[in-house]
Design a protein around this nucleic acid. Structure first.
Lengths: 343, 343
DNA sequence: ATGAAAGCGCTAACAG
DNA sequence: CTGTTAGCGCTTTCAT
């Protein structure tokens, strides 16, 4: 097949018997300065030639690429899917296109991918940082004057980025309140390493606050995907909480699945032997173990709002950035926290 | 903040005291034609000025945007996550960036989004068609000479697109073989409407083939997300399969979740009252109902291979396209198909 | 209402 | 080894 020869604005102009300027005006909806006749002739030419404007050429002039990027910490995390959906909807409805990249929880990947995005001249970046230590890439974004909205997690050091995330404090409070209501005494909090991830730190901090003198909280940090350490910790904790009404709280979807697997392996019954509560509510939570009580996140909104914020900033750069928006979670009560002793 | 003035190749050239050409050569790794001294001075200038090449300007000249797009039928489908991950890895490792858009199962959205992608001058599109009827957008892609790889589903009418998908025939055969082994007699196949989705049609066709004269197959098509129709159909089917060893086969993740919900609602026990087998193996399948037997798809590979194919075509356009690659699924046997009668 | 001309930032002959 | 020159396809003053 012969190499396709690209149709340009000049071809359209020629065919319509007008100047490129007029065609350009037509394409950009500048119909004030066009006689109806010209407009029609241009429209015809565009259709006949099956012409499509070249976004790069336009961008070069207008400095408006129509590109927005989402950089996620870990694309395999089920939780992120609804968030991305929300972002995609918002972004597309405003005529932008969405670039997605996965940092795979590695700061160096995150930096590399952001560097590429800068060269692609994205107009804005929605970032779920995989590490709260300030990466050089984030500095670059600032220097290049590219808008950034932080999503799901924030960065400690960098000031003045808009941020949209779950109200972790409130989510944990809701969980704890429910737990106490159900008459539990012992809590085992299962989390991924909280060191450099703000959402995990916030949740852990909230957990550690003494909500009620009746509650005794232990924490297990999942350092590896190998279950043996957890098995040991769990058995130890169970031994002491057996007659004390124990409940496990999982910090996210991954630890929930991990915990369910171990409970299954050890033939520990929920809620008979132990209670279970998850932060975040994947679609299957209703059906595992007869229903897992959870704190549902407004994931779709999280994405949608982050994207809208970002596009707002792009269009109007003259307002104070650095706003933090915390969305509330919602307790969904299911069977996994119906402690039998509570009758 | 003053509007940031962009650093161009001219600035670098001036600072290094060389021509733009030399800088361009340096940036593109054309070091053969550069004296070490010049190269160093350029390198310094680039660093000092924190210069980043403008991808659009480059693309305009080279006709190489570095953009690849994935258009998925429904982003909310959990199944697609691993596929996207595979695509993202492959794409990024070759230095491309990935655009993602969601057709929301609507042909008109699919067309609109593809139209936008064409204008963004993507070099290739990985398409999971939401409908096998040939959309005009697909025609446009062909006319614009943009490479396309079909993923997960194919298009009936359009010839000559590379395609990567599950070997549906084989997947169903594996399922049926297992079912027969377990001594089941009655099968209820639950599927989403198969009309315009090739993968669903392929699976349904494979199901309908009489695998064994001992098997009696019924089919339920889920026309709406409302469960009442299914409840009725299920009870009717159960009545007749009670003493006959019945098993439900779900065509995908969505119908599996749907079915699990209804079984739960009706207090039907698995595998005591009925067996269950799912095509596709989401992470939670192990833990629901004590483990759901499933046919796992090589989702990550599906994405990775589709992306590699596409990039191969982009780099070397002179080979026969239209190759169809079918990847095999793998049976994972769990508790949900251990029919108690089979002892 | 319309067009001529000057770029946007980069690359690629071609000539030295 | 290096630089000059001419665009890539589009937008945008500024005239007319």
């Amino acid at each position: 097949m012969a190499h396709k020869t690209v149709v340009t604005i000049a071809d359209v102009a020629q065919r319509a018997g007008v100047s490129r300027t007029s065609v350009s005006r037509y394409l950009n909806g500048n119909l004030d300065n066009l006689s109806p006749g010209t407009a029609t002739r241009i429209a015809d030419a565009v259709r006949d030639l099956d012409y499509r404007p070249n976004a790069w050429a336009r961008s070069l002039k207008t400095r408006h690429s129509g590109l927005i990027a989402a950089v996620v910490a870990d694309l395999r995390n089920e939780h992120i899917l609804a968030v991305l959906d929300g972002i995609e909807m918002a972004v597309n409805s405003q005529g932008y296109s969405l670039l997605i990249s996965n940092a795979q929880n590695r700061l160096d990947y995150e930096e590399k991918t952001i560097e590429r995005l800068i060269q692609q001249r994205v107009e804005g970046v929605i970032l779920q940082p995989c590490d709260d230590r300030q990466s050089s890439a984030v500095q670059s974004l600032k220097r290049e004057d590219i808008r950034v909205v932080l999503m799901d997690r924030s960065l400690d050091v960098v000031p003045a980025f808009d941020t949209v995330l779950l109200d972790n404090q409130d989510a944990v409070d809701q969980a704890m309140y429910h737990i106490i209501q159900q008459g539990y005494r012992q809590v085992l909090y299962v989390t991924d390493p909280p060191e450099h991830v703000t959402s995990r730190r916030e949740r852990e901090t909230a957990i550690k606050k003494q909500h009620h003198s009746t509650l005794n909280v232990s924490i297990f940090v999942r350092e590896s995907s190998d279950a043996s350490q957890f098995v040991q910790a769990l058995q130890q904790w169970m031994a002491m909480s057996l007659k004390e009404r124990g409940v496990i709280i999982c910090a996210n979807v991954a630890t929930t699945l991990f915990t369910v697997a171990v409970l299954d392996q050890l033939h520990i019954q929920v809620p008979t032997d132990v209670g279970l509560l998850a932060i975040d509510d994947p679609p299957w939570a209703r059906y595992v173990l007869g229903g897992i009580t959870s704190i549902a996140q407004p994931t779709l909104d999280l994405g949608r709002i982050a994207a809208e914020r970002l596009m707002g900033r792009i269009q109007d750069s003259h307002s104070n950035p650095g706003q933090v928006l915390r969305l509330s979670g919602r307790l969904i009560e299911r069977r996994s926290t119906q402690h039998p002793h509570s009758l």
